[in-house]
Design a binder for these strands. Sequence first.
DNA 1: CCAAAAGTGTTCTCTGTACACCCATGA
DNA 2: TCATGGGTGTACAGAGAACACTTTTGG
Lengths: 249, 249
Amino acid sequence: MSPYDPSAFPPFAVTVDLVALTVREQALCALTVRRAEPPFEGAWALPGGFVRPDEDLAAAAERELLEETSLRARVMEAACPVRRGEAHLEQLATYGDPGRDPRMRVVSVAYLVLAPDLPTPRPGGDVEGARWTPVDALLEGGRSGGRLAFDHDRILADGVERARSKIEYSSLATAFCPEEFTVGELRRVYEVVWGVSLDPRNFHRKVTGTPGFLVAAGGTTKRQGGRPAQLFRAGEATVLNPPMLRPEP
Amino acid sequence: MSPYDPSAFPPFAVTVDLVALTVREQALCALTVRRAEPPFEGAWALPGGFVRPDEDLAAAAERELLEETSLRARVMEAACPVRRGEAHLEQLATYGDPGRDPRMRVVSVAYLVLAPDLPTPRPGGDVEGARWTPVDALLEGGRSGGRLAFDHDRILADGVERARSKIEYSSLATAFCPEEFTVGELRRVYEVVWGVSLDPRNFHRKVTGTPGFLVAAGGTTKRQGGRPAQLFRAGEATVLNPPMLRPEP
DNA sequence: CCAAAAGTGTTCTCTGTACACCCATGA
DNA sequence: TCATGGGTGTACAGAGAACACTTTTGG
């Protein structure tokens, strides 16, 4: 059996699935779409679709995201900080269990998207209903709210875990923030994603003291509650050294 | 365009490729095979092959590894320490650039294998020549020694980087060791994989002081040079907290 | 005035680092 | 005896945790 006989390879379908996360209303939310056809008709699922014959995997993920949310993402390469208005996109893992799709053999490459909160989570194109759903309701509370189609529960769980661990040692938490943000807003991202509460004083010293993490945006004030806060943008740093420590409960 | 029309999916070939690493003679080595057919006939490549129609991706990786090295691997799931004689296996990433194989569209799921040094790196089955090659020669020194086939240089680089960062915060370095090993042998693993030298005294305190990392194997001595050293086995811990810090040069 | 969020300073503790020193073997 | 690697003790510096305290807004 020669490893590359072009005529004898088994037929596989290849898709991309998206774990698109954002922070909305004090909750970590994932983008879900409602399936319009069987199997799992009417069930919620992660957005995704076929990779086209001459399309790169990451390009397929970007296209699907754009089609369903009109959100532009940018592939994360080493030392590539997220830019204005663009979401962060990275490969998560590949799921190819035989039988994960009841009709045929489908290998799905999952991508993780970290996006700032959007004014409208407007569904676009051919998708019936797309919306942001709190991941807590989809994962642990999923017994009542209903499970996601296929193995998307596991893909979502893997994506959430990747996001939780990655903001520990990278500057990726800023991908959840708008272009300009305050230290308190960034702290709320960490608190929501990790489900903990952090000391505001120590957090402030930590993030402002890490070179390259934040740069002052000049504009020095904004209303959030009490005293006006300085505005920052994401700096050039991509890795946090020393990392942000996740407290244990 | 419905996302799951069984008759309309584009044809893809799906393969697994292995980045199998071990520590031999003070060098981090990767398993390479020599290609017997075009394209890249005669060139070195990572071992790999087609996923069978009803085979899970991880099972395909295990099968390929067994066929080419008679090495048994075990899929790494959360909280699953490596066991006696078995290698560690985890999914690395998926590579699907159109044109990465000149003949057809091939999506390759790469797996990372961390193995102890083997008595014989014996090639098995239908593979012409399989051998362990120092990764330094394959990566930076690759200009002279010759590049790997396809995009395997990049896959190998990603695998090495994953291994380097993963032994920082997990107990995976023990996967490079035989079942029973000394603290000095474990330290040499870190030194070779990272390409640094570590303080033996502090390293000893660190690893023996981390609960669950090492357990004394009873047998208390062995000859390695000077004074006899205690023998240990890998403990139940999988994550290192606090992590092992990689010194900067 | 009070509540709420933004910042700053200080103290304590923990752990990583550097290095002196002793132990047990082979040659 | 010396060289080699194994293992312990100790002192110093840096960073995280806890928290007192000041600043600046809105109500």
